[in-house]
Design a protein around this nucleic acid. Sequence first.
DNA 1: CGGGATCCGTATGGATACTG
DNA 2: CAGTATCCATACGGATCCCG
Lengths: 126, 126
Amino acid sequence: MRAVRRPGAYVCGIDAAMDVIGGKWKVLILWALDEKPCRFGELRRSVPGVTEKVLSSHLKELEEDGIVHREEYAEVPPRVEYSLTPRGVALNEALDPLGAWGREHVQPGTPTHSPEGVAVAGSDPL
Amino acid sequence: MRAVRRPGAYVCGIDAAMDVIGGKWKVLILWALDEKPCRFGELRRSVPGVTEKVLSSHLKELEEDGIVHREEYAEVPPRVEYSLTPRGVALNEALDPLGAWGREHVQPGTPTHSPEGVAVAGSDPL
DNA sequence: CGGGATCCGTATGGATACTG
DNA sequence: CAGTATCCATACGGATCCCG
């Protein structure tokens, strides 16, 4: 994963934000968590195609970035719950117009929200 | 670069949008073009650190995605001008809240817009 | 000037097996 | 269940040379 943050500084806020959500599955993770807090296994099912390692890495980074909160319960069947922090909620809101743009301009018919993992069929309209 | 579009389809609009702006320098390019149409050389100067090849690739992809328009003038000193399409303008607008989020949450003090010498004091090309 | 072609290093992500 | 460890593939980005 991103070994370390961009050394110097960001050129702009978008640049900075992109560094946070740059992972391949991050926005999908955020999206799933936007619905409800999730356990690791749930998340894995909600984000089809992601592997444990990558999911784990992404979650760790999102946690470091203050986007998700990780609550660990020291129980016998280990239980961990991930949820969005206020900052994460704000990020998701900021992401909304971008999602609208994507739906409008690149993939008409894309669902608005389907954390269960629905994939639409369709081709590039361009 | 992205050899081909994501095989199946996108899970959501954000997912789709991310595929469009996923390149390392794309948002910076968009940002520069948001100010004014630019020639290749200008762009290269506006996006410090990017190499010709990558800039070229990114521009080509952005063009394929209908984000930028490429106007080629068959003159003796070859001249090409890149500009944002309406779709590109819309994308930039959709990116705005994300930029605001980034400025607020990850890099306080990041400038709002400075496409001229995008280099912020102290910024360091990777 | 505006790139295309080539070669190459690295970061990112994937598969699988294993552990607390 | 919730990860970690290891190995591996490749996409991405960079340097350089070259051409219209």
